[in-house]
């Protein structure tokens, strides 16, 4: 049987990008199923995402934040029995042709989760601003200290998950700024995490969810969340038969 692959695309006010993002994925591989989670957008995202009929669109009745939106995707993947789920940003900064690269480790059963990273090797393309790179360095250090793994790009939202990880995250996923926290959560619960180098491009339009004064708040919140997650007990998992 063919492997079922779900591309989870969280979108909040992404009317400018969402249609192109879906089209780029479908153009690359028509077998990928696209799932857009419209996280209570106030613009035309819903219509734009539905317009070309290439994606299933889930419209959340109110805004949950990126974590809640992505978790909706995991729940959908679990209910519909998908083998792999790819988290893919709705703003056009990830490239569809990199999907096989982050899927490969899962398909060879080398890892449960694979993160597309900008920093494993010096890749070309978009590298983020100086301040952000410092923040990402701090997260990387925390990963080393808290779960003793080398994960260089904790904030990357370009990730692949296998069935086991999907089931786990459908039940346990952080809400606000989930990426760095999830790395700790998964590491703590003995999931195999790997990183592969990918290229990203600068966002095509819309606004980043984190900017300006918010970034200090973001750093403190995320560091606290990472520390707390590392303190928690392992969550008991029922193996999939």
């Amino acid at each position: 049987m063919n492997e079922q692959i779900l591309i989870i695309i969280p979108a909040y006010n992404e009317e400018k990008n969402i249609r192109n993002v879906i089209k780029s994925i479908k153009d690359f591989n028509a077998d990928y199923k696209c799932l857009v989670i419209n996280d209570g957008s106030r613009d035309n995202t819903q219509h734009e995402a539905e317009s070309n009929g290439l994606a299933t669109v889930i419209e959340l009745p109110s805004n949950l934040g990126i974590g809640g939106a992505v978790q909706t995707g995991f729940k959908y993947a679990l209910y519909e029995n998908f083998d792999y789920a790819i988290q893919f940003d709705g703003d056009g900064q990830h490239l569809a042709n990199e999907i096989p690269a982050i899927l490969a480790a899962l398909q060879n059963d080398k890892a449960d989760v694979c993160i597309g990273s900008r920093f494993v090797e010096k890749t070309f393309g978009f590298q983020s601003t100086f301040m952000r790179r410092i923040g990402i360095r701090i997260f990387s250090l925390m990963n080393l200290l808290l779960i003793r793994r080398k994960i260089t790009d904790s904030t990357s939202g370009f990730r692949a998950y296998n069935k086991e990880a999907i089931e786990f995250l459908a039940a346990n996923y952080p809400t606000d700024y989930p990426e760095p926290e999830t790395v700790i959560l998964l590491g703590k619960n003995d999931f195999r995490i790997c990183e592969v180098p990918v290229e990203m491009v600068e966002r095509q339009g819309g606004e980043s969810s984190i900017s300006g004064l918010k970034s200090a708040h973001y750093m403190i919140k995320v560091i606290l969340a990472m520390l707390m997650t590392a303190q928690r007990q392992k969550i008991r998992r029922i193996p999939i038969c």
């Binding site: 669109v57 009745p61 909706t72 729940k75 959908y76």
Partner: peptide
């Protein structure tokens, strides 16, 4: 609830 409602609506 919001997540489940969204999935059911779709």
């Amino acid at each position: 609830l919001i997540q489940e409602v969204g999935i059911l609506k779709a």
